[in-house]
Amino acid sequence: MNDRISIKISVEPLNIQTCFDFVRDDSCGGIALFVGTVRNHTAEKDVKQLDFSTYEPMAVKEMEIIADHAIQRYPIKRIAIHHAKGLLKIGDLPVIIAVSSAHREAAFEACQFAINRLKQTVPIWKKEFFSDGEVWVNAHP
């Protein structure tokens, strides 16, 4: 894999420091970090936990495509895209995206591009568990 890109899907808790350390570089004046966190409600219902399932080999490929596009589109140095799988509780971290660049605009823009694209293309599915049942998110949009 390209040494400017770190992609990971993990059943272990994601680590912000690991993503930060991967992207930091002496040539960079800024690092943008997006951290997704599990929220305790959706549509006014209390969420107890989430379960993320994935088509992992394809998800990794799609995440690599996003990182490649980010590097082509924006003057950034490195990008890390890490996503969790399995059961997550309130406050856990489903996703971390870190981007470094010489100047801050590129890092902000590339980070937003990456999370938006991830939510559109990466084959990962979230199931929400409530006290009275469970539902696949987006299953009936």
Partner: peptide
Amino acid sequence: AVLPPVSGG
């Protein structure tokens, strides 16, 4: 692979 609308992130 049959892929429902994704909901990662």
